[in-house]
Design a protein around this nucleic acid. Structure first.
Length: 360
DNA sequence: AACACGGGGGA
DNA sequence: TCCCCAGTGTT
């Protein structure tokens, strides 16, 4: 254990009692979830990626569809990227899907399609950071490795009364040291999952259910009555707002113009209706802007919607307008006219799915 | 260390 | 509104 403060903290802690109470509770009260039916490392992996920054209830249907479509690691490795993104559509953080497939290809090519049990090999895979590495090693392979996520930091900040700012990157290392010091070597899988399950069900961010908590007798924050004040977390700065015009452009055959976003950055490789940043143009010059960028002359119909879409770091304020093609030739790369029926073959971000209701 | 990167749900 | 969430990659 490298962390001196953690050493002090753990010194008088009833580790064996805590382990027993946590693990027994987990086996008694754990939710039956699709990815808990077995310990297939591939399924554990996919579920852990999906669960990053995403609630269990949201993930369940995605996980089930994903496993039906890509039952094995090799199925995913051989799949078309657009199909993978389509399966991820609406889940957000789309680089997770792209990194996962990249990593799975690597496992197929270099490790005979078997998820590495070696920590360094596993951690070198795209999208497998410290958390996911520890989760796979402990849950699928029963190795006593820490898997520190937001739940674990919240639970242990209270149980051990640690007031480091969990918004700071280096704080995660403190909690990794803590977990290394108290993790069960007999059942690291149930220990780690128990911490996370406790954080999800009992030791919640606001108004934790301390009266129902299986480790209440071990909890220093509860003893001091400060469970509401932990964890300490500085707040993020608020999002920047950006305005856009979105074009629902229909040609003479009733086909709509869509385009693919760049393969890096926000919503990478997803599809959308054409958009003009209001920093570059306005409603009056929209047709002119459009002609210049797409080569297509359009007649603007009118505004049919206004969509406010909130991301973690910015806000889109989108005016949706209808238009019809008058002439010209489409010159924009990665853009095309498609039939209404074809639209649902393409992965769209939720912001643009909201515009689909104006398409006939 | 700071920032980019989605989306949904709860208080 | 604001905050939260089974985080990782890039700079």
């Amino acid at each position: 254990m490298k962390n001196k403060l953690v050493e002090e903290t753990i010194n008088h802690f009833d580790t064996a009692g805590f382990q027993a109470d946590l693990i027994n509770w987990f086996y008694q009260e754990q939710r039956q979830l699709p990815w808990r039916e077995d310990k297939d490392p591939y399924k554990v992996w996919v579920s852990e990626i999906m669960l990053q920054q995403t609630k269990v209830d949201t993930v369940i249907p995605y996980f089930q569809r994903f496993m039906k479509k890509f039952p094995t690691l090799d199925d995913l490795a051989e799949a078309d990227e657009q199909e993978v993104l389509k399966a991820w559509e609406g889940l957000g953080y789309y680089s997770r899907a792209r990194n996962l497939q990249n990593a799975v290809k690597e496992v197929a090519a270099s490790y005979d399609s078997k998820v590495p049990e070696n920590a360094n090999q596993l951690g070198a895979l795209k999208g497998v950071g410290p958390y996911t590495k520890g989760a796979i090693l402990s849950i699928a392979y029963d190795q006593p490795e820490p898997a520190v996520d937001g739940n674990v930091m919240r639970v242990l900040s209270r149980v051990l009364s640690i007031d480091e700012d969990i918004a700071k990157p280096k704080t995660r290392k403190t909690f990794e040291s803590a977990v290394k010091a108290i993790i069960s070597h007999e059942d690291p899988s149930a220990f780690n999952q128990g911490l996370m399950e406790l954080g999800a069900i009992v030791c919640t961010p606001t108004t934790p259910s301390c009266m129902l908590c299986p480790v209440q007798s071990h909890c220093r924050a509860f003893a001091e009555g400060i469970q509401q004040d932990l964890p300490v977390k500085t707040k993020a700065k608020k999002q920047k707002q950006v305005g856009y015009l979105a074009f629902l452009v229909k040609d003479g055959n009733g086909n709509y113009l869509i385009e693919q976003r760049p393969e890096t950055g926000l919503l990478a490789s997803l599809w959308q209706f054409p958009m003009a940043p209001l920093a570059e143009t306005d409603e009056e010059h929209a047709a002119q802007w459009f002609s210049q960028v797409y080569g297509v002359d359009i007649k603007i119909g009118g505004q049919v919607d206004r969509i406010k879409h909130v991301f973690s770091h910015l806000i889109w304020d989108v005016e949706v307008i209808e238009a019809t093609v008058r002439g010209g030739v489409l010159v924009r790369d990665a853009s095309r006219f498609v039939t209404v029926e074809e639209l649902d073959q393409y992965p769209f971000p939720v912001s643009h799915q909201k515009m689909l209701k104006h398409v006939e």
